[in-house]
């Protein structure tokens, strides 16, 4: 998959009338109600469109609409609610710590050590298992020490040429949302009970560092200042 080599029907469409159709992202990348026009999703679908019966990993909760959307297009979908799994993991660790006898080897461990332990059971897929990963905004909710380890694993399971869609808030998110695909350029934001607090606002250079193993990236900034990043491995 290659951004420059792929044919873009939109970019070559002639302008009609006074309002020229401009190539590139749809200008109205702004939420309408709970719906969000997502240029990132549109681009993501375009990038994985070359792979017949490709495999997509959704790191959010499982939704009928998202699964149906991809299955109807011939993709195989895997879901793993990573944030929920992380929360459950932390709760179990906390419980283990509390139940450990005083003086036992129950010292609190660093986030990076926790991350390594977490990844012993999470994201257990063979190398190059997926052609696309929908990470939504979950990286904002992980400790900055944990995110790089997650990214390393995600990069491992992503096929070369595969794409990842991630979102980054420019300020701490006011509400915790989940995302589901409505159509090829629309995602629905569903307010959900907070299972994790917003951990970190990533700067652009941090994002680039996080995706250092990827060969190219493209970012769309919405009027709500949410940055949709599309990363090509």
């Amino acid at each position: 998959m290659n951004w420059s080599a792929k044919h873009r029907p939109e970019a070559t469409r002639p302008a009609t009338g006074a309002a020229a159709v401009r190539p590139g992202p749809t200008p109205s990348a702004v939420p309408s109600g709970n719906l969000r026009i997502s240029n990132g999703l549109k681009e993501f679908l375009w990038l994985i469109s070359d792979v017949p019966h490709g495999r997509v990993l959704d790191l959010g909760p499982v939704w009928q609409s998202t699964v149906s959307f991809f299955v109807d297009k011939g993709y195989r979908v895997s879901t793993e609610d990573l944030l929920r799994t992380w929360k459950d993991f932390l709760a179990a660790e906390e419980e283990g710590f509390r139940s450990a006898p005083v003086g036992a080897d129950a010292l609190r461990i660093s986030p990076s050590v926790l991350a390594d332990k977490f990844l012993e059971n999470a994201l257990q897929y063979p190398e190059r298992s997926f052609h696309g990963v929908l990470a939504w905004d979950l990286l904002d909710y992980f400790d900055p020490e944990v995110a790089p380890r997650l990214m390393a694993r995600l990069s491992h399971v992503l096929h070369p040429g595969g794409a990842m869609l991630a979102m980054f808030h420019s300020r701490p998110a006011e509400r915790f949302h989940r995302y589901r695909v409505v159509d090829s350029q629309t995602v629905e934001l569903l307010a959900a009970s907070t299972i994790a607090v917003h951990s970190h606002v990533f700067q652009n250079r941090e994002i680039l560092g996080l995706f250092g193993e990827f060969r190219s990236s493209k970012t769309f900034v919405g009027r709500d200042q949410v940055r949709e990043g599309l990363f090509l491995k």
Partner: peptide, 16 residues
């Protein structure tokens, strides 16, 4: 065919 209600938790692969 698959039906998924909101709130369901699935960790795994869906294949048709």
């Amino acid at each position: 065919r698959i039906g998924i209600d909101d709130g369901a938790r699935l960790r795994g692969k869906v294949e048709t």
